[in-house]
């Protein structure tokens, strides 16, 4: 099961002691790309969607879509232009959910025999900046020159240190 840690960064107070904030530490580390390659780095805003595969095989399918791509896809599906009324967040989430629903259905049809029934759950979509896959991985997302750069931290010991540092 994947968990998201959505939109906390935006609401957090200004960082007065950056060294104690592990998010800032990670951001600081990633910012080195800017120094190396002279390309702007920023935190990515993503839509994260998951759907359960229930039978005959258990599992889960997950997609991550940047906010800008999610909006572009939604506009395209609804036949809207970016000049139309600003998209409601719920509409974008619904469009991302429907996309994953179709992807998962098609995927299962592809891997199973034609006469094999299968069931999938209902997709759940939310906005996120970070996901933790298992207790031993956290992934945060950045954009470099508008391209997605996921950064993963792996290993229980490091994750625990990261989490403890973050909660200080």
């Amino acid at each position: 099961m994947w968990n998201t840690n959505a939109s906390q960064q935006q609401n957090s107070p200004e960082i007065v002691e950056p060294v104690k904030d592990s998010r800032a530490l990670l951001q600081q580390a990633v910012n080195n790309i800017e120094k190396m390659a002279f390309l702007p780095v920023s935190e990515a805003h993503l839509y994260y969607s998951k759907i359960k595969i229930k039978t005959p095989i258990k599992g889960e399918m997950v997609i991550f879509v940047t906010e800008s791509l999610a909006k572009e896809l939604t506009n395209s599906i609804y036949g809207l232009t970016s000049e139309d009324n600003p998209l409601q967040k719920e509409r974008v989430k619904d469009a991302v959910s429907e996309m994953l629903n179709i992807i998962a259905g098609q995927f299962m049809r592809t891997i199973l025999p034609l006469d094999q029934d299968f069931t999938i759950g209902l997709p759940i979509t939310e906005q996120c900046e970070e996901v933790s896959g298992t207790s031993s991985m956290i992934q945060r997302f950045y954009t470099v020159n508008n391209n997605l750069l996921p950064v993963a931290i792996k290993g229980k010991e490091l994750i625990n240190f990261f989490e403890n540092n973050r909660s200080r």
Binding site: N101, I102, A104, G105, Q106, M108, R109, L112, L114, D115, Q116, D117, F118, T119, I120
Partner: peptide
Amino acid sequence: SAGSVTKEKELLSIGAKAVINK
């Protein structure tokens, strides 16, 4: 989005006009 050939036949047999895959 989740239709097998078996399910499609079943749905047609109980009165569906057609089963269309997403």
